[in-house]
Nucleic acid binder design. Sequence first.
DNA 1: ATTATTTTTAATCAATTGATTAAAATATTT
DNA 2: AAATATTTTAATCAATTGATTAAAAATAAT
Lengths: 229, 229
Amino acid sequence: MVKSKNTLYICFVESYLRKIVKRKEEKELSTTTEEKIKIAARLVFHKKGYSATRTRDIAEEAGINLALLNYYFRSKEKLFDIIMFETIFDFMQNMARVLNDEKSSLEKKVELIASNYIDLITKEPNIPIFMLSEIRNNAEGLLEKLPLKQSLMNSAFFKQHQKAVADGKIIEPNPLHFLMNLLGLTIFPFIGKPLLQGIRGLNDKQFNNMMQERKKLIPVWIKAMMKAK
Amino acid sequence: MVKSKNTLYICFVESYLRKIVKRKEEKELSTTTEEKIKIAARLVFHKKGYSATRTRDIAEEAGINLALLNYYFRSKEKLFDIIMFETIFDFMQNMARVLNDEKSSLEKKVELIASNYIDLITKEPNIPIFMLSEIRNNAEGLLEKLPLKQSLMNSAFFKQHQKAVADGKIIEPNPLHFLMNLLGLTIFPFIGKPLLQGIRGLNDKQFNNMMQERKKLIPVWIKAMMKAK
DNA sequence: ATTATTTTTAATCAATTGATTAAAATATTT
DNA sequence: AAATATTTTAATCAATTGATTAAAAATAAT
C-alpha cells in the first residue's frame, strides 16, 4: 500500500506529536527508566557517599537491571558527577538567589537563608555531609566550574554588609565571619545531630521542633551578635 | 556491614586506658610496627573514610607489608573500630573535661571550648567530617557505649545554664540551642571551608588566621546572643 | 650454639564490583 | 506485516580488594 504525500505528512506530524505527548505523560505520571535511576542514585549516593555505594545498590533501589545504569550513564562516576553537580547547584542556587537580591534587606536575607535551608535540609538531611565530604574528597575543582561563584562574589549581600559596617551597625568587618556564623547556626545542627542525640536523649520529632524554633531565633541571634564587641 | 558489637567498646575503654599508662611508663622512643600501622590507619581513615580506604593504602602509608595489618589487627574493620573509638573518645573527652568543671564559669567554658577545638581541629582538620559522617553511616550505637554520655548529661554546664536562665541572664531556656550554637560557630567553619573558599578566594593561611580570630570573637558573640530576644 | 618463638614476606585465594556483550523483548517506522 | 530501532535482560569478564598461608627472616629462650 502506497501512501499519498498527504497521508505521509500527516503520519509524520502524528508521530511527532505522539512523542511529545508521550514525553509529557512520562514526566507527569510515570517516570522514565533514566529518571528512576537518577532518583535512586541521588538517594543512595546522598546516604552512603560515592565509595560506599555499589552500582548494584542503585539498580536495586531503582528496580532496574544493573546493565541499564551503564546503558544510560556509561559509568558510576559519570552518574555520580551528575548527581553531585545537581545537588551542589540546587544548594548554592538557593543561597545565590537570596544573597543577590538587591531589594531585600540584610536582615531579610538572614531570615530567608535560615528558613530556606532549615526546610531544605529537613527534607533531605543527608545533603550537608554528602556535599561537604564529597567536595573534600574528589571534586575540588567542581566548585570552580559552578557559574554561581562570580555572582556571589559581588553580591548585594557583601555590599550591604560593607555598608552596615561603615554605618557602625555591624562591628566585625569581615563578611566571611558573618556568613560562617549564619551557615554554622543553620546547618551545623543537622550535621551534629547524632552527637547531640548522643549527649542528650533527643528523638527526631524533638529535633525537628528545635530546628523550626531556630528559624525565628537565628535572625535574632545574628542581629545581637553583629552589634556585640 | 555490621561494625558494632556491644561488648567491644567497654573492652576498648579498658585497654585504651591501660595502654596509655603503659606507654607513659615505658617512654618508648621508637615506634613499634603495631603503632606504625595505627598512625597510618588514623591518617588514611580520617582523610578518606572507611569505605574509600584500602588496606593497601594503610600498609603503604605505614611502610609495612600488607599481611602485617591482618597479623596485628585481624581485619580492616577491627582496626577501623579502634581508630574510630580513639578519635571520638579524645574529641568528647575534651568537651567533657570542660563542661564538667564545677569551678569554671559558663563564660569560661565557652572560651575554653572554642579555643580548645579550634586548636585541635586546626591540627587535624579531617576529624569533624570523619567523625560525623562515619557515625551516621555505621556506629549509631557507638555513642551510646561511650562512658562520657552520663557525665555530660548532668554536667556543671547544664546546671549553670539552668541557673543563668532562672536568673534572667540567658533568654533561651533550651541548653541544646546553646550547645548547638557554640559548636556550630566553632566547628562548622572547618567543615564548610571548601564551600567558603569556593565563594571567595581564601587561602589556608587566611583561613587559619580567621579561626584564630574566632577564639576571641565566639565568646563575645555567644554572650550577646544569649541576652537577645 | 641450638631450638623455639615471634615477626615479616611473597604468593595466592575468594569474594566483590564496575563494566561489557550478545541475545531477547519491546516499541517504532515503513 | 515486515523491517528497523530501542530498551531490557542474563551471563560473564577483568580488575580490585580483604584476607590467608606457608615459608623465610629475625628475635628470644634454652
